[in-house]
């Protein structure tokens, strides 16, 4: 049996003082050893490394997504087996664990795979995050043998990342499943472009999202309706107020005072500010649904301040 070991010259996170900020990094090496039984797939011995300036060389069309989550570096490994398409391991190092969570949450849709701090497996692709790392392992081919190999590789990579990191604090302020939260629908976002990809609001950045703001978008099941709750944290109350004014002016000019209205699909939109936060609900079947989600979120925010 052959055991491959390779060193990944990555920057790992870990100064305690920075952990509170979402786990930033200090350089160290990440050791990963392939499991003895890789089903006949062998590492080709190459590591392709990318940084923010050349990420476009590796990705056609999706690089901006990773850059928006403050991408730092990527190492790509391929495992080959005669007569089979390769398996690919992609290890992304992001600026913080919140960013790693963010990129994971952005495309989450499959069943939990039990790896790292959050994972999923589907369509031949394993995705997970741990610490400031987001990892993707996939094979072009199909079949249980390939899938079990991917999972074994995933476990090895997850083990090689020694430190966990916190998920974004903002998520803790979302009302929970008792009011209909769909867990997999939670997206942590850092730009209006990403927000629009999950829920189009406007072609311009009317909510003033930027790298210094954080946002979470989540769906709630209210009866048969899916309602979207958007929670944004700005650096100051003033910035939140300016953003709310901008949003209302562009999105709900006829209801800037009230802060709620029935839109053209006969559903309700509501938006308000609490301190440096903006809370907004879209697509509620009744005004009471929007109101309940807003109030529950406000209560969570108040509790978090105590």
């Amino acid at each position: 049996m052959r055991v491959w070991i390779f060193w990944v010259a990555l920057n790992l996170i870990l100064t305690p003082a920075r952990m509170a900020d979402g786990a930033r990094n200090e350089p160290m090496k990440l050791e990963i050893s392939f499991p003895a039984d890789t089903g006949g797939w062998n590492w080709d011995g190459q590591v392709r490394s990318f940084h923010p300036r050349n990420l476009f060389d590796y990705m056609d069309g999706a690089a901006e997504l990773y850059l928006a989550y403050r991408f730092q570096s990527l190492d790509v490994y391929q495992l080959e087996k005669s007569g089979h398409p390769p398996l690919t391991i992609e290890i992304f190092r992001m600026e913080s664990s919140a960013d790693a969570y963010g990129i994971f949450s952005f495309e989450r849709q499959d069943k939990e795979a039990g790896l790292g701090q959050g994972s999923e497996f589907g369509g031949g692709m394993l995705r997970f995050w741990k610490g400031q790392y987001f990892v993707s392992i996939y094979g072009e081919g199909e079949g249980p043998e390939i899938e079990s190999t991917i999972i074994r590789l995933g476990k090895e990579v997850a083990q090689a990342i020694p430190q966990q990191g916190p998920a974004p604090k903002l998520i803790a302020n979302l009302p929970g499943t008792q009011v209909g939260l769909i867990q997999k629908s939670i997206h942590y976002l850092r730009s209006h472009v990403l927000l629009n990809q999950r829920y189009f609001i406007a072609n311009q950045n009317i909510l003033h999202l930027n790298p210094q703001t954080e946002a979470v978008l989540a769906q709630y099941l209210r009866g048969t309706h899916k309602v979207h709750l958007l929670l944004i944290q700005y650096s100051t109350d003033k910035k939140a107020e300016d953003a709310l004014h901008s949003f209302k002016k562009a999105y709900m000019p006829e209801a800037t005072e009230k802060g709620f209205l029935k839109t053209e699909d006969r559903k309700w939109t509501m938006a308000k500010r609490q301190g440096e936060f903006i809370l907004a609900v879209f697509g509620a079947p009744a005004l009471a649904d929007a109101d309940e989600l807003i109030k529950d979120t406000e209560a969570k925010l108040k509790k978090g301040r105590k």
Partner: peptide, 23 residues
């Protein structure tokens, strides 16, 4: 200033009109 195109334009089915104004 270019007109902002919002989700509500699509709900109204007027995105094309909004686009004409925006561009």
């Amino acid at each position: 200033e270019a007109r902002v195109i919002t989700r509500r334009d699509f709900l109204r089915g007027t995105a094309g009109v909004a686009m004409t104004v925006a561009f």
